[in-house]
Design a protein around this nucleic acid. Structure first.
Length: 347
DNA sequence: AATCTCAGCAACCGCGATCCT
DNA sequence: AAGGATCGCGGTTGCTGAGAT
């Protein structure tokens, strides 16, 4: 006797989103802000259930989303946070503000799981000659073959949890201004300082990037999702390489969109009232290379390389745990002594 | 060239939590 | 306080392209 699925309503569309639908959704959110998803279909005329709208916004259209390859640092963070938090993808995603939980989850399931298993096997084959006779590796990261007893493991885990708790406590007692801002930014993405819906525009622009190019090949919206993902990949690869999406690229896209007879970027301009679509850059649409991130008093800051200190931006809340995991011995110890034998659920 | 298999990812589904009346 | 509505999360599915046969 479960609740009837919300998307079972007659006439509700499923499957990949079309550019037109994206525009409708973004224009609605631009006007009303994210939330009250129930009213989105009625207000926009979208034949999508509210859930689908929310998901589309959260995972693809909202500002500040980075797509494409994960950096080594991101990968490490995911692995370490997953070890610490388990499959709490939303929690993990909160430490990687440019990534969505869905993205992280997919990356874990498709890449990291295998990668770790592989390393596990390598570890096992290394260990097999050891006197313990343990057939599987006790941890993935170290080939030290440190076999610790369950008691040791539990004590260490408890110590790590306590450390993490303390770190979180410390983080929560940061300056009021900072925490207030963080709270606002976390709870009300639409109000985020330094954000604008321009970045949504760019998200859609990315989605559309190859759509036009490949249009003759695949006419139906159905192909859009695939094409858009290609486009995402391309543009994000640039991002990873540390190059900013330059105006010429966007300009080209603009041209291509025009040549197709559907000037979608103009639609966006009118939607968002920008002078120029090309100039609609935002802090978070700008690619962030690891070099852009500095740590100031335990808080991650995004520093623009073109200007003064005024452009320091609070990048993510509670980076203390991140520091803990990435830089401190606790994090390393945690991983070094992590037993996959005793945590089979991880995989 | 055709078919099969696999990997990657966007989207969906169901459930628990939270909000609202 | 209760019950319905809505939201958010994690698991799963299904489509598509790429590579293998």
């Amino acid at each position: 006797m479960g609740r009837p699925p919300c998307c079972d309503k007659i006439g509700m569309k499923k499957g990949p989103w079309t550019p037109d639908e994206d525009i409708l959704l973004v224009s609605y959110v631009q006007e009303h802000g994210p939330g009250n998803w129930k009213s989105v279909p009625t207000h926009t005329g979208l034949t999508r259930c509210s859930k689908s709208c929310r998901l589309r916004w959260t995972n693809y259209l909202r500002p500040g989303i980075k797509r494409g390859s994960f950096t080594d640092q991101e990968e490490k963070m995911i692995i370490q946070l997953q070890a610490l938090l388990g499959n709490k993808w939303a929690a993990i995603a909160s430490y990687l503000p440019e990534r969505t939980d869905n993205d992280i989850k997919n990356y874990w399931n498709t890449h990291l799981k295998k990668k770790l298993k592989k390393q596990l096997q390598i570890g096992a084959s290394n260990n097999i000659h050891h006197e313990s006779g343990c057939s599987s590796a006790d941890n993935v990261y170290s080939n030290n073959s440190i076999n610790i007893s369950r008691g040791q493991w539990e004590r260490r885990l408890q110590a790590d949890i306590n450390t993490a708790k303390q770190a979180l406590k410390d983080a929560l007692s940061l300056e009021n201004n900072e925490s207030t801002m963080m709270t606002i930014n976390n709870k009300h993405p639409t109000l985020q300082v330094g954000f604008s819906y321009a970045s949504s525009t760019e998200n859609i622009a990315r989605l559309l990037k190859d759509w036009d190019k490949k249009k003759p090949k695949c006419e139906e919206y159905n192909y859009y999702s695939k094409c858009s993902s290609t486009s995402i990949q391309d543009s994000s690869n640039n991002a990873v390489a540390g190059t900013t999406t330059d105006s010429s690229n966007l300009s080209d896209d603009h041209h291509q969109n025009k040549s197709s007879g559907i000037d979608l970027s103009e639609s966006f301009e009118s939607l968002f009232g920008f002078e120029s679509f090309e100039s609609s850059t935002s802090e978070f649409s700008r690619s962030t290379s690891p070099d852009d991130v500095v740590h100031v008093h335990g808080q991650r800051k995004l520093v623009r390389d073109d200007d003064s200190n005024d452009h320091e931006l609070a990048l993510a809340p509670l980076s203390v745990l991140e520091n803990l995991l990435l830089e401190h011995d606790q994090g390393k110890d945690f991983l070094n002594n992590f037993s996959f034998d005793e945590n089979p659920d991880m995989f």
